[in-house]
Simulated scan of single mutants.
Amino acid sequence: MVRFTITFFVMVILFLGGVIVGFDQAGTGMNNLSGNDVNEYDAVEASKQGDDYQVDLLGESFEQKPIEEKKEEYQDINQGLFTEKLAATVEGGVKWFFNMLIEGAYQISELFYRV
Rank of each mutant, 00 (worst) to 15 (best):
M1D: 08
M1I: 00
V2R: 11
V2C: 00
F4M: 03
T5I: 10
T5D: 11
T5G: 04
T5K: 14
I6S: 03
V10H: 00
M11K: 06
V12H: 00
I13K: 03
L14M: 02
F15I: 02
F15K: 02
G18Y: 01
G18S: 04
V19T: 04
V19I: 12
I20H: 09
F23T: 03
Q25R: 10
Q25V: 03
Q25Y: 03
A26T: 06
G27I: 01
G27S: 11
T28S: 12
G29T: 06
M30V: 01
N31M: 12
S34F: 03
N36G: 06
D37C: 04
D37E: 08
V38P: 02
E40C: 02
E40H: 08
D42Y: 04
A43C: 01
V44L: 14
E45L: 05
E45P: 00
K48S: 05
K48C: 00
K48L: 04
G50D: 05
G50Y: 07
D52A: 12
Y53L: 12
V55Y: 04
D56Y: 05
L58Y: 08
S61M: 11
S61L: 12
F62C: 07
F62R: 06
K65E: 12
K65Y: 06
P66G: 15
E69S: 08
E69A: 12
K70W: 01
K71S: 05
E72V: 10
E72T: 13
E73D: 09
Y74V: 11
Q75S: 11
D76F: 07
D76N: 15
I77M: 14
I77W: 14
N78T: 10
G80Y: 00
G80F: 02
G80I: 01
L81A: 04
F82W: 02
T83N: 08
T83I: 03
E84I: 08
E84P: 00
A87D: 03
A88M: 06
A88C: 01
T89A: 15
T89Y: 11
V90F: 11
E91W: 09
G93A: 11
V94C: 02
V94I: 11
K95F: 12
K95T: 02
F97K: 13
F97W: 13
F98I: 09
F98W: 08
N99Q: 12
N99F: 02
M100T: 10
L101R: 12
L101Q: 13
I102N: 05
I102A: 13
E103K: 10
E103H: 06
Y106D: 14
Y106C: 06
Y106V: 11
Y106K: 15
Y106S: 13
Q107W: 11
Q107F: 12
I108C: 09
E110F: 14
E110P: 00
L111C: 10
F112R: 15
F112G: 07
Y113N: 14
Y113I: 13
R114L: 14
V115I: 14
